[in-house]
């Protein structure tokens, strides 16, 4: 459960500051009670009555409050944007989705018919369940194909994330360019405080060779950002897997067996890394459940609360107080 820590300062501000001069009117009840006065020959004879004194000052205070609330309402009181630090059990999770056209095929490598769902559909369905389960995590979505696609930065807004995941149901694009995608996923952690575990979940059905320059950069960045990497490899039937060994030594290169080499690259990054080879939606589900189980560390993060208009509350308060004062007015008696 997220819980409020330091609530932050109440940053109150007003739309039209000059109207605050009207707050001087709040002093009026100090000078006039607003009640009909009756002449009394001699007040000194009246015995002291603490209850009456209390009632008098309470009424005076209420009247001052009413005035102040009205003036603040007129001036347009609002609470400026602020952030609240919360503690979540979870992580910053970037879902990096492969949008290459092969993702639109089923696990069998065919165009999906009514019975089999495509890899991307299965990934969408399971990932959105995953997002639903992890209530307290920050999620981001990035996709990549030939070029990386910026979809949704880290946010706690689950609706936005669900929408972002659903948005990947549009027909997929051309090729797989995993290094650009990873760079973008890593860039999501820029300017984010390191408050808990950082996770990149790479969902892809294939890999591509990473050129040497990108490899160097990725090594540095992954170290810097201290991410954990999970690779959900949606293996199409009869395609080379992560752990496949080339039969012919001549084929043992990054171009021929990108999955194997990408796995080796990830393993050599020196960060926690886990690869899951999923050949069916069930296997994918198990992999996701595994990740879900692994990542449950507490997380500090700042929740941003947008500017809130408080003038309605002011008017409401003034109205309530006025009603109260009016009630008291009905109990007023002329002698």
């Amino acid at each position: 459960m997220p819980q409020d820590r330091a609530g932050g300062v109440m940053n109150l501000a007003v739309e039209t500051p000059w109207l605050l001069a009207g707050l001087l009117f709040a002093l009026l009840p100090l000078f006039s009670s607003g009640m009909a006065v009756n002449p009394s020959p001699w007040l000194a004879i009246l015995p002291p009555d603490p209850l009456s004194t209390f009632a008098t000052w309470t009424l005076r205070l209420l009247a001052m409050l009413t005035m102040a609330a009205l003036v603040l309402g007129l001036a347009g009181l609002y609470r400026s944007e602020q952030s609240i630090e919360r503690i979540g059990h979870g992580a910053h999770i970037v879902l990096l989705l492969d949008r290459s056209s092969s993702m639109d095929n089923s696990f069998a490598g065919q165009t999906p018919d009514g019975k089999n769902e495509s890899k991307s559909a299965a990934a969408r369905r399971l990932l959105s369940e995953f997002v639903d389960q992890r209530k307290n995590d920050l999620f981001a979505v990035a996709a990549y194909s030939t070029a990386p696609l910026f979809v949704m930065p880290l946010t706690e807004n689950k609706q936005a994330i669900q929408a972002a995941i659903a948005a990947t149901s549009t027909p997929a694009l051309a090729y797989t360019h995993v290094s650009k995608g990873l760079s973008m996923a890593l860039s999501f952690f820029d300017q984010q405080p390191l408050t808990g575990s950082r996770i990149i979940v790479l969902v892809s059905d294939g890999a591509a060779a990473i050129d040497r320059d990108s490899e160097q950069k990725l090594r540095v960045w992954v170290k810097q950002k201290q991410v954990r990497l999970y690779w959900l490899f949606l293996r199409t039937a009869n395609s080379p897997g992560i752990h496949s060994v080339a039969e012919d030594p001549r084929d043992d290169n990054a171009q021929a067996m990108p999955e194997r080499y990408l796995h080796q690259f990830f393993s050599s990054l020196g960060v926690p890394y886990q690869a899951y080879e999923a050949e069916s939606p069930d296997a994918l589900q198990r992999a996701i459940a595994d990740i879900n189980h692994l990542e449950n560390l507490p997380l500090h993060y700042l929740e941003r609360i947008p500017k809130q208009d408080l003038s309605y509350q002011c008017y409401g308060l003034a109205m309530g107080l006025l009603a109260l004062l009016l009630t008291v007015k009905f109990f007023e008696i002329r002698v």
Binding site: S33, M35, A36, V37, N38, P39, S40, P41, W42, L43, A44, L46, S52, A55, T56, L59, V328, F331, E332, I333, V335
Partner: peptide, 15 residues
């Protein structure tokens, strides 16, 4: 009830 009195001589008020 509530009654407010003002003193005729010294301008004091009491509720």
């Amino acid at each position: 009830g509530m009654v407010t009195f003002h003193d005729l001589e010294n301008r004091g008020t009491r509720t």
